[in-house]
Each structure stands twice: as C-alpha cells, then as structure tokens.
Design a binder for these strands. Structure first.
Lengths: 195, 195
DNA sequence: GTCTATACACGGATAGAC
DNA sequence: GTCTATCCGTGTATAGAC
C-alpha cells in the first residue's frame, strides 16, 4: 500500500482528468484515495488549490515522460510521431476515452479564473516544450524548427483529445497525426516561405 | 433589450466558455443575464442540464459559422487556413485569452461524466466536420481528403487554444497554423503514402 | 411571465478526539 | 498522523405570491 499522500495525489489526478477540477469534490478524492478526509488538509494545508497545484505539476511531469518516450531514439521522426498518436489512440480505446491528457481539462477551467493554477499549467506546458525541443533537435533539426514542431505536435495531440473524447472516435487522432507528419516532412526538406 | 431567454443563453455561453460548466452556478448565470433566478427554470424546465444542452448547441452553431466563414471563397486554401488562425489569435489577445472555443471546456468536463451532454458536444463537432468538409471540397479536394483536412484544422485550433490560454501566448496558434498549412500543401500536390 | 423565499444537499474548510 | 463531526457558504431545485 502506497502512502496516504501519494494515494491522494493519484486520486485527484484521475478525477481531475475525467471530471475536471471544479467537478471534483475533496470528499470524493478522499473516498477514492481511501484516505480520511482530514488527511487532505494535513498533507495539503492550502486546501483544494494547494492539492490542485501539486496534482498539475506531478501529473504534468509524468505525462511528459510518457509522451516524449516516443521520441527517444532519433531515427525517423515521422515514424515517431505516427507511433505516438497511435499509442494515444490505443489508450483512449482501452479506457473508454477517459485517459487523455491529465491536465487539459483543468488548464481550460483555470485559464481565466485562477491565476496561480493557470501558471502551474503554463509551467507544465513550457516544460514539455523545452524538453521536447531538445528531443527533436537530435533528429538533426534546427532549434527554432524543433521548437515549432514540438509545439505543433502537442497542440495537435491536445486538440485531437478534445474531439476524440467527445466523438468517441480515434479519427481525430489520425487526422492530427497526418498534419504533424506533413509538417515534419516539409521541415525536413526545406523551410517553406513565411506566411 | 433582448428577451430573457436569450440573455440567459448569452450569459451561460460566456460563463461556460471562461469557467466551464461545473464551475458556473445558476445563480451567477441569472445575475449576469440580469434575469430573475426563477426564469431559468421557467425557460429551461430540465434545470442545469437542459440549459447546458441548449447552450452547447446554440454556441456550437454560431461558432461554426464564425470559423467556417474564413473558408467562404474557394481561392487559396493555405491562405484561408493562415487567416483563420491569425484571426483567432487576435480575438484571444483582445479578450485576455478568454474567448476561445465556447464548448471545448464543457466538452472535456462532460465527456466521461454526462452522456447526454457528451452527445450534445459530439453533435456539434460532427456538424462542424460535415459542413466543413463541403467547404473544403470547393477547393477542388476529394471528399475523404477534405474531411481529413477539416478535422485536422479543427483539432489543431482546439489544441492551440488549450496551450495559448494557459501560456498566454499566440505561439501555439502559429505552430498549429504551420502544421495545417503543410498538410494542405501536401494534400494538394499528391497524396503521401499511408502510415 | 416575473420575482422572492426557501428547502435540502453538497461544497470547502476547521476543530479536536484518539 | 488518523479519523470524525461539524460549521458555514453555495449549489440546485422548488413553491408560490404577484
């Protein structure tokens, strides 16, 4: 049995991912975590926002490792992209379209309502972009192009999750995958004119 | 002064877009709408879910018209895409990154928690895709390619909104725009091999 | 059709026994 | 450090006067 603090974070991560933050009560988190209600305030004295901030940062870090693992060996970037999207689709199908990005729902909820939590989500995305850029550079891509490609990859994945979860279909993931692949191919050949 | 029912829907649309559905109370909606609380149940007897369903469908229809207007004259598809993303970025900057897609936050919130509302969001996205496909076809694109391109466009836009709102930057919109443009260019030349 | 008052459950938060 | 009881505000929903 893991410790109480970890179980609470596991529970909040899962519930935030499926229901969002304002749709999830602290009592429900305690219940799912099999932890006494008071433990939440013992480990997270700042209450719900405190817990949410740590949930965002921890889940964000783990999800980054999960996704960027597909770019581990710098062989064929187009193939890496395709594999990443296919894997994401498989997870969605296996979890009845519940397990997509763990912070996207919360990110949209807090973007205009809670500045400290908005910054927490921004820090996560910034981290993904910065670390992701170094990964893409290893495929022999210039830094600014690598940055643009990883941002395009993340945005495509996030957007595809929105449509896929609503439609209960992996078709958006396939279309998004194609977009990113095309962008990579184009960048690999020669940079197209600025628009 | 518009009628009460319309003001209520206007208020719920704006609040859902910025705070999500579970983060918005009916009392707050009545307040913003300058409507008596009881009017909500007068016009939406099914309560919050009733109001949410109608909010999703109305806002979804309006936003479709707003976005697809950029594909009105079938000239240069790449240019149309670029203009659409640029315009979306301007709206974000003008509204302090609040006015993005009016249904995305709600879509993620209800995807795994409320089946009837999930279907409402799915109906909206399906409508965007179907109508959008007919728009893209007018650029001399085969139906299946047109469908893939409009899905790729919508997913890129939605994903870029997630990152842009969190980061308070339009950089994700630019990267997403490039992805879609590359995909369009590639489709216009000759179809690349299946992946 | 407009508006107020209120019932009842659930939300976050806290106190304090053990 | 664990766990329960409880406070108080807010949330949804309803009743009913006007």
């Amino acid at each position: 049995m893991t410790n109480t603090r970890t179980r609470i974070l596991d529970a909040s991560t899962e519930l935030f991912r499926r229901q969002g933050m304002s749709g999830t009560g602290l009592k429900q988190i305690a219940e799912v975590a099999k932890a006494p209600f008071g433990s939440i305030y013992h480990f997270f004295p700042g209450g719900k926002d405190d817990l949410a901030g740590q949930t965002i940062r921890r889940a964000g870090g783990e999800y980054r490792d999960l996704v960027l693992a597909f770019f581990a060996d710098p062989d064929d970037l187009v193939a890496s992209v395709a594999t990443a999207f296919t894997a994401a689709g498989q997870v969605l199908e296996e979890t009845e379209y519940a397990d997509a990005c763990p912070i996207a729902t919360v990110a949209l909820e807090v973007a205009s309502t809670n500045e400290t939590l908005r910054v927490a989500t921004a820090d996560v995305f910034t981290d993904w972009i910065e670390v992701g850029t170094t990964y893409i550079e290893r495929y022999q891509v210039a830094p600014d192009v690598a940055r643009r490609l990883i941002i395009g990859f993340i945005t495509s994945l996030e957007g595809a999750f929105v449509l896929a979860r609503a439609l209960r279909s992996t078709e958006p993931l396939e279309a998004a995958s194609r977009n990113v692949q095309a962008s990579v191919r184009e960048a690999m050949e020669t940079e197209p004119p600025e628009r």
